[in-house]
Design a protein around this nucleic acid. Sequence first.
DNA 1: CGCCTCGTCTGCAACGATGTATTTATCCGT
DNA 2: ACGGATAAATACATCGTTGCAGACGAGGCG
Lengths: 334, 334
Amino acid sequence: MAVTMNDVARAAGVSLKTVSNVINNYEFIRPATKQRVLDAIDELGYETNLTARSLRSGKTSMLGLVLADLSIPYYAELASDIMKAAWARGYRVLVEQTGNEADHEKAALQGQFRTLTDGLLFIPLALDAEQIIAVAGKKPLVLLGEFVQDPRLDMVLIQNHQAAAAVTTHLLAGGRRRIAVLGAHDGDTAGSSGLRLEGYKAALADAGVPYDPALVVPCDWRRDGGAAATSGLLGSGVEFDAVFGLNDALALGALHELLVRGRKVPEEIAVAGFDDIDEARFASPSLTTVAPGRTEIAERAVELLIGRIESKDAALTVQQPEAAFELRVRQSAR
Amino acid sequence: MAVTMNDVARAAGVSLKTVSNVINNYEFIRPATKQRVLDAIDELGYETNLTARSLRSGKTSMLGLVLADLSIPYYAELASDIMKAAWARGYRVLVEQTGNEADHEKAALQGQFRTLTDGLLFIPLALDAEQIIAVAGKKPLVLLGEFVQDPRLDMVLIQNHQAAAAVTTHLLAGGRRRIAVLGAHDGDTAGSSGLRLEGYKAALADAGVPYDPALVVPCDWRRDGGAAATSGLLGSGVEFDAVFGLNDALALGALHELLVRGRKVPEEIAVAGFDDIDEARFASPSLTTVAPGRTEIAERAVELLIGRIESKDAALTVQQPEAAFELRVRQSAR
DNA sequence: CGCCTCGTCTGCAACGATGTATTTATCCGT
DNA sequence: ACGGATAAATACATCGTTGCAGACGAGGCG
């Protein structure tokens, strides 16, 4: 059915292996021979069967990307960047959605999915570091995202603490003194919600503004979580002149709720987020946020993972590069 | 290195082929034997090498999904639905981004990418039907999206005409008479911009409202295109009391621009879109739009493609199922 | 009691490429 | 013109699985 190397070899009057050598840019081939082979390839419309190559070589040239759901804008954008970075290095990306369920995450780390990839990029949500280490196989694994930090695992870090402090400092500089925080999870100190909250506190302390726990509202990191939390805050009578959503979805939910309730943003209440998703730029008013260097994260992660895959020497020490962040000041908090 | 069927066979004291038979649920195996094999699999942690299976069976159980860029929300959401639909049927999805460039689209249709998949789902943007037919290989191909329609190709259709008419009728019912249309491309009659414009005209005609070409503004189907077009319209002195963006990105761009310019939505000017992307629900004011049945599109497309792949009989007639749509009335146009 | 059928399991070849080792062609110096 | 080095091409085995055909033993039937 399909054209194989054998067909090409016959057409070009050389051995099968020579065709293979031409395709793999083997150094010592006479130009004339090479040309003959290339012509035959062209004429027959030959295409190398990547499946066969993978079986023989033991490499699939595919990276697995395990995340909750592509319909979440930040993940989609990150996935897009990761694919581009991988593509530029000769790798493809196979995405696996877990729907934020621990079982699916485990399955993705262990299951057959792995046999299709040379290594995994993983954005953990449900599993913690212990569980990840317990189920991870031998293939290279690089974590990214927000929730897991552990010195035993390769991962790309976001400067959660510093970036959150930068946002808070910006709000303080704008004269805000009662800054509500949405999305802090109680007891989380190592994950990014904890780190961001710490950054917030540090900035307050630096400015000599007292920390008020009543301003900190735990909720799901989604738009409706942000909206509900804001609604609760407005109803509770707690006074505040700014809202810091620990991610953009929260901030946008808050923004929406504030406008619906007739509050003026940023005049009465400033709003800021974290992530700089595409939508932040186009909200009304546009959202002040911090860009965690999404493209850089993608690049670093891909680079690190491919480095692991291609280095024979597996005994390298754990790497945890940090991506740079950037404050994006827009209308919602000048 | 890895555990193979051979290892399992030895451990269970059966032949390699019997292990294979167990894994593939071959009917005639004694329960005791089956159990012994399953135990050995469990004990050794065997996992079938999908690459080898693909090579031998000629099936990869992967579908290719070719689209412009996952960072565009509608595509990301569609991709997510497609992956879920494929997953439920035992297939994985390999995404290829083309960046809306004709060369990349061609490469995706022809190139090695295909050897990794059993069939392709393709959202064409740069190529037209002729070009697609010219470069498409023999593997199954199902189109989706908005821009190409052709009786020779399998595709899932959106009810562009009817849905656009429904939006327009809704705006008319709200008392609007001067409805601007953003994103119509001159000369496009077969593509969805043309069909949607026709739907708009038909609804006007039904209501006895005259059609004014000055209200129709061509522009890129992106947020900034919508913003720019709206800006132009406001500057031109043409009067209008509603804006119909031929997709949500356009409508959101328009919405943003109108608010920035101090126009009240929907009091002064109503806004409606097309697609019902996630963001439409959360815009301020939330966006009235039409949901083209994204999940249904994904399901139908996957079903059709897998049907093609698994039916031996390739001479089936072209299929073009239509997905149902639904008007979503929200604040921007009551 | 022998033959056939059926259920159960096995052996061999093959999918299409690449790695290793080896053979053949070409070039160089003397 | 010839030996030796090096360039160029080849042979063969192999990756881990599945398709096909067949082996083997146990019953059923005439």
